[in-house]
Simulated scan of single mutants.
Amino acid sequence: MAHPMMFDASDPYLTRVREICLRMPGADEKVSHGRPTFFTTKVFVTYGGTVKGDHDPEPHGQSVLVLPDADDRPALLGDDRFFEPAYLGPSGWVGLDLRACGPPDAVDWAEVTELVDASYRRTAPVRLVRELDAR
């Protein structure tokens, strides 16, 4: 049985996240477990998530899940906008609740881009990271 779609394709937060992610070399998008994911050979961003013990897709439905540098993770989780996502959290991933950042036009998209960049660098093949650095 297929997972139900847990996102709105016209979501303005998703539109901006998609633009940021698909600018990365070799990046593509697919729907996995009902959510948009962005990947090269491995996933570097998932849009939307849940927390352990609460599988309601709504509270964190408009969030980005990323794999930050391990040294940055504690500080990120100390910020109320961030959360440890179910399933991925134990592997070092964090979620940024975009609604907690304000309406789409108030989000610090440079911050989101930095998070996406860090996650991409941790998951993408070396040749794609070199291509990103050459831009």
Rank of each mutant, 00 (worst) to 15 (best):
V112S: 02
R35T: 14
P103S: 15
R35A: 14
D133C: 05
F83D: 08
H55M: 13
A2C: 02
V94E: 00
D54K: 13
G34C: 05
T15G: 11
T37C: 15
R23V: 02
S32W: 14
L132E: 09
G61R: 03
D133L: 15
P125H: 11
H3V: 01
I20V: 15
T123N: 10
D97S: 09
P90T: 05
T50P: 05
H55Y: 04
W93D: 05
V126M: 06
S63F: 01
L14F: 08
D11F: 03
P25D: 01
P57M: 05
G34H: 08
Y13L: 04
V126E: 13
P125L: 08
W109D: 07
F83P: 01
H3W: 11
T37D: 00
G48V: 03
P125M: 13
G78L: 08
F38W: 08
V94N: 04
L67V: 03
R73D: 01
V126P: 13
A75I: 05
T113H: 12
P36D: 06
D69T: 03
V64P: 02
R16Y: 07
R73N: 00
F83N: 01
A124Q: 12
V31L: 10
D11H: 01
T46Q: 14
P125I: 07
A100Q: 13
R23L: 11
L22V: 08
G92F: 02
R122P: 11
M5C: 06
C101G: 05
C21V: 04
P36Y: 10
P57F: 15
H55R: 15
D28L: 13
D72P: 00
E111N: 05
S91L: 09
A100R: 15
S10W: 00
D105C: 02
D108A: 13
A27W: 06
R121W: 07
P125F: 01
G102K: 14
W93V: 03
D54C: 03
G102W: 12
G102T: 10
D8W: 03
R121N: 04
E84Q: 14
S32N: 09
R35Q: 15
V129P: 04
A118C: 08
R121P: 07
A27M: 08
A75S: 09
G95W: 10
P57I: 07
